[in-house]
Amino acid sequence: MYRGIMEQEKLPVLPPGCSIDEPETVKEFLTKARAALVAVGIVRDSVLANGKDVGRFSGRIIDSDMHDVGRFLNRLLGLPPDIQNRLFELFTSILDVLVHNARIEGSFDSGIVDMKANSVELLSTPKTVHVDQMSGASTMLFTFTLDRGVTWESASSMLEGKRRDGLGSANDGFFESKREWLGRRHFILAFESAASGLFKIVRPAVGESIREMSLSELKTKYRKLSSLEKARTGWEDEYEVSSKQCMHGPKCKLGEYCTVGRRIQEVNVVGGLILPIWGTIEKALSKQARHSHKRIRVIRIETTTDNQRIVGLSIPNAAVETVLQDLAWVQEIDD
């Protein structure tokens, strides 16, 4: 981020409040951002060049500041609200891009991941996939069905509840994306959160988003709908379509294995005795074509009907057959 603000490299995202069609808005933001970083002491020895490089800014950021997120966030508090909010939004947007890329490359490590959804059900009776000869302990394969979606009725109730409790704002409501994605517009519910100026986002397919959205970003990407009927039709259509396909549409290269934006997902978890077969599972996953399927993830999942909690290794749907084959081979060796 710092290098982008200093124009040493290109920013990976469009700065908040800027337009790709108006390059001067980006230039203006970078000028204000540099001045802000100088003001709080992050950029040092700043110089504004004269002569043939007139107007060109230079300065340095010491190594200890370059990667110190805590210091950056603390220094933000000393800035006026407008540039403070815009710099923080730029920071979170870049972080989202980095996390997204790390997930694709399979290099993102989030520790134990809680798999949450509005409905979590055990699809079938757990299958024994390995029995340790020494202890007699079993390794089980659990298959769950997750429904992350929010119905129109639930979304409407959320909005009405906010208004009834006097917690709503004039900008709360249902929105439609300004741009189409693969021929479709997307619908969201947005309502102001406890943090002033930020909005919680609820989507038909995946429920409430972890990341809140600023009002400027909301208005840039979406338009508020005055017609509840249009909002209802769009919401229900997206809710239904997302039960069968991912957000990339019916022609997605990964087909049924892609879960991006898919409302109903099938999740496979290997639980029970894990350590003796960890290496076997790791080797099986290493054979997968996609980087995101190669990494072992420990997840925790709890059914919503009977609160059965399972902690184990997440097995991508595309890798289940390979994992089971390798475990069967190990079992034959043990026998």
Rank of each mutant, 00 (worst) to 15 (best):
V120A: 00
S124F: 10
S169W: 11
A155Y: 06
T145M: 06
N171D: 14
E121W: 05
H100P: 00
L123D: 06
S135I: 14
G161R: 11
E176G: 05
F144T: 02
V131F: 02
F174A: 08
L182R: 09
D172L: 09
E176S: 14
D172F: 11
S177R: 14
R184P: 02
D132G: 11
E105F: 07
G183M: 01
V113S: 08
E176C: 14
G168N: 10
L122Y: 04
V150Q: 06
M140C: 11
I104D: 06
A102Q: 08
F142Y: 15
G173I: 13
F174K: 05
D132I: 03
S107Y: 02
H100V: 00
L167A: 12
G106I: 07
R184H: 02
A170L: 15
A102V: 01
S119P: 01
L98Q: 10
G168F: 07
D109M: 00
H100Y: 08
R164K: 15
I104K: 01
M134R: 05
G111A: 07
L123G: 00
T143R: 15
G168I: 01
M115T: 02
D96C: 11
V129W: 03
D114W: 03
K116M: 00
R184Q: 08
L95A: 08
F174M: 06
M115P: 02
N101W: 03
E153P: 12
I94C: 03
G106S: 10
S110L: 02
R179S: 12
L167I: 05
L146N: 13
S177L: 01
L146G: 14
L159R: 09
L122N: 01
G111M: 01
S119K: 09
G166Y: 08
S124Q: 11
W181F: 12
M140I: 07
M158A: 03
P126W: 08
H100D: 10
G161N: 13
P126S: 07
D172Q: 04
G111W: 04
F108C: 03
L141A: 12
D132W: 03
R179M: 04
K127A: 06
V113R: 11
M158I: 14
R164T: 08
G106Q: 08
L95S: 07
V113W: 02
T139C: 06
G173T: 14
R103M: 04
K162H: 13
L141I: 12
M115L: 15
L123S: 07
F175I: 03
L182T: 06
S138L: 13
